[in-house]
């Protein structure tokens, strides 16, 4: 997967918080995997919902899009395989995010 960069990383008002947010994403991917393994679908959905709401705001439109698909799948009670694929796609996306360099 190609590296994902924030569209706001050149905005001086945003750089610091984009760095913080991006740096947390690998940890979020791990949480997603843990919730999936534990079968905690409620937590999985909550996390997907949060990533959907925050991703685009930090300039990562792809995070919002992929997180929205996972949330939708969980809401609809989709098959386990669909949820798994969707979660895997989200994790892959989160891990492709690049933490912007400090100023």
């Amino acid at each position: 997967m190609d590296p994902i960069r924030s569209i706001y990383e050149d905005d001086p008002d945003m750089l610091e918080i984009v760095r913080e947010f991006a740096a947390e994403l690998p940890g979020r991917a791990e949480s997603l995997e843990n919730h999936l393994r534990d079968g905690d679908l409620e937590e999985l959905q909550r996390l997907a919902h949060q990533l959907k709401g925050a991703g685009g705001g930090y300039g990562f439109t792809a995070v919002t899009e992929v997180a929205a698909s996972l949330e939708q799948a969980l809401k609809e009670g989709a098959d386990e395989s669909v949820v798994k694929d969707s979660a895997a796609a989200l994790c892959e996306t989160l891990r492709a995010v690049v933490v912007p360099a400090e100023d």
Binding site: D13, M14, I17, E20, F21, E24, Q50, G53, A54, G57, Y58
Partner: peptide
Amino acid sequence: TVSIHKLIVA
């Protein structure tokens, strides 16, 4: 979500 707080502050 704390990341939303920070975003709104910014």
